[in-house]
Structure formats: C-alpha cells, structure tokens
Design a protein around this nucleic acid. Sequence first.
DNA 1: TAGATTGTTAATCGATTAACAATC
DNA 2: TAGATTGTTAATCGATTAACAATC
Lengths: 208, 208
Amino acid sequence: MVTTQQTKRLLNYRTALHHLKNIGFHRIYSYTLGNEVGVSADIVRKDLSTLNVSGKKRGGYDIGPLIERLEDYFSIHEDHEVILFGAGNIGRALMNYSGFRKNKIFIIAAFDNDPMKTKTGNDIPIYPMVEAERFINQHGINVAILAVPANAAQHVCNQVISYGINSIMNFAPVVLKVPKRVHVSNINLYDELMNVFFMGRTLKEPEL
Amino acid sequence: MVTTQQTKRLLNYRTALHHLKNIGFHRIYSYTLGNEVGVSADIVRKDLSTLNVSGKKRGGYDIGPLIERLEDYFSIHEDHEVILFGAGNIGRALMNYSGFRKNKIFIIAAFDNDPMKTKTGNDIPIYPMVEAERFINQHGINVAILAVPANAAQHVCNQVISYGINSIMNFAPVVLKVPKRVHVSNINLYDELMNVFFMGRTLKEPEL
DNA sequence: TAGATTGTTAATCGATTAACAATC
DNA sequence: TAGATTGTTAATCGATTAACAATC
C-alpha cells in the first residue's frame, strides 16, 4: 500500500529529478536523491521499489525512465481539470499560478457569489455559483478547490459534493465534514505560519 | 515532547473551539472535539493532557479556559511580524489575506527584485531586495515567507538565513537546504493538488 | 446508584532505520 | 578483485488505539 506521505515523497522525487536532469545528470544514487528531497537513502530505495523501479547495483537509477515511471504513476501527462470556488485573494492567485498550468493542471472555471467578481471574457471565466451544478455535469469535473470564506466553506462543500465532486482542496480554516468516499486536503495558511513561528521559538538546537 | 503533527492538531482544536464557542457551547467532550477536527477522542485527551489541561470526569472540558491555554501555549495574543519575499500572485494574495491579520500575524514588508513591483505608499511596503538585510536587522525579524520563483528560492533562502532569519515558510516547489537550526515549512501547491487528483482516482471506497 | 467521561497505562500498528546478502 | 550500491528482511522507534481504573 502507498500512503499519503509516500505519495508526497514520490512527487518530490519527480521535482528533484527534473531539476537534476536539467543540470546534466543522467544517473542518480538513492543517497543523492534522498539528500535532494531531505529523506534517507533507505526510504528512497523502498519507495522506488514499491513502484517496481529497479536501479543498477553500484550504478544507481537512470533518471529518464525513473521520471517516466513517476509521471505514468500519477498520470501527469494527462490534462487535469479542476474548478475553483471563491474568487478572492487566494482564488485569484491560484488562477494565475503558473505551477499548475506548466504541469497540465487547468482551472477551467471559477465560481463566486459576488456579481462584481463574475466575468466570462477572461482566460478563466468566473460564473455565479448557481451555474456550478450544470458546469460540473457538463464537463464531468471531479475535483474542486475551495477558497471561500470559512463560514461558507461547509455549505459550499456540501453543495459541490452533491453535484458529484469527490476530491477537494480546501483553503478555508475549517475541517470539512464529508462522506468517506470524498477526499479532502486542507491547506490552512494561518496554522502553517503560526506553526513556523512556534517552531522558530522552540528550536534552539546547535548549528549544523 | 510535542511533535509537529500534535502542534497542528492543537491549532485545529483552537479553531474548532472558537467555532463551538460562537455557536453557544461552554463545555466540550473529548469525543465531540475530536469529531470536530477529525481525530479520535483518545488523541484529544492525550494532546490536552500533554498541555496539562484537565477536564471534569463526566463533565468534559470548559471551552473558555481551554482556548486560553492553547493561545498562551502559542503566544497567540502577541503580535507576530513576518516579512515576505516575492510580490507575485501568491505573495500578493498573502499580503491581502485577512486570516493572518485577524490572528495577529502581520506581514510588515515585502521584497521583490522587480522595480515595477516595489512601492512604499501602501499598507504593506514593497522594497527592492537589497533593502532586506537592513530591514531585518532594524526590526529584529526572525520569520520569512518565500514566494519567489523556484529557480531563485535557494539563493534567496541562503541570503535571508545569513541576515538572521531562522524560520521560513516556503511556497517555491523546491526542497530548501538549510542548516539544522533553521525551520522550514514547505507548501507545494502543485504537489498538494496533484495528490488530490491522485487520491480521487485511487479512493473508490463505498459511501459512508 | 448507574452511567458516562476523563486520564493513563498497555497493546497494536505502521513507518523509519539498521543490517546485510546480492551483485555490478 | 575490492568497493560501492541496490533491494529486502529484521529491528527499532513513535504514534495511534484499546483498555480500564478513577470519579463525577
């Protein structure tokens, strides 16, 4: 079984491998790759072995095929379509975020209740919320990003699930209640940053 | 010892408790709070017991003092000052993000290399990068947010560490290499969203 | 009192690390 | 060949879960 933690490491390996390839590497040792993403060589080897990738004893892993295997595993070469709820600060930043587009993730529409924010001429149209159900069905969308205010999040969440969404990336500082079949990934910017402050205060270890 | 995971749960408890208080609760059971943040009652009790908070057998925990204890623990009532590097999409969204200000986290300045983006009239001044060292020293800043392009991230990171920063929240899709005394929290939006797509494809469990 | 809930100790589970044989 | 690295199995570590006595 592949866990969420492992999945995130695999995505990290992919990023690191692209970087290493760009700077001229063709082969990589588990030790080097681990160092690059901040995990041990043992974990790298174990992760890769669960993907049935094998290296050469003493020769390491070929970067090209390894990237291919990772990208196949995540179906990275396919287009990924997602819709966005909430065209506020965070929502707009995500619409313009090139890191998605470069990797074939496309926010194909946004939805907002504020009529001031809806407009359809742009790259990414922003529709009123009432259009969401039709749009989701028409385009067969499964994944939604929630960047709505905290007090609206659970309500919008319930709605989009009823329209057929089964995976949600949630930026609202609320732990959403969803049926088991729905997957939610929470990004709580305040918690993350507060935690950074806290760790900075706590960590007083000697320098490397 | 309090782990990072535990720390994040504690912040989640705080948010949930504020919510519960707002809707009229004064007491809470470990079971209820756990349900609210998606963890077991056992974990809630254990977490709270490491904070030396005690409840009443059969009566649960008083919400008011519990919130106080959590906010003391994180020094939430103090002002927290942080500076931002990179005034692109993500950077600007963070500058306008009310979730920080509401909780006494203030981005007091931003830095960017692009002269088109620097301006000082606004709420949050945006300075050229060369001003960073002076600013950090003058204001005694320890925490920085990095929202710069991937290819600049390690360089900017090295710089800010040399200026005295010891805690970093990093939005660039790069695993930063830092001395042990420096704490980094990575937020990789692409990885998160790709993982949501992946989980949506993987999870085909029966409905709740 | 009986029932419910806390607080803590013990058992389980899973993930990381260590160890090492295989082999290039 | 000797040395280095993979791939896998066993040992360790830590976190979650189960169990249960204390008690309101």
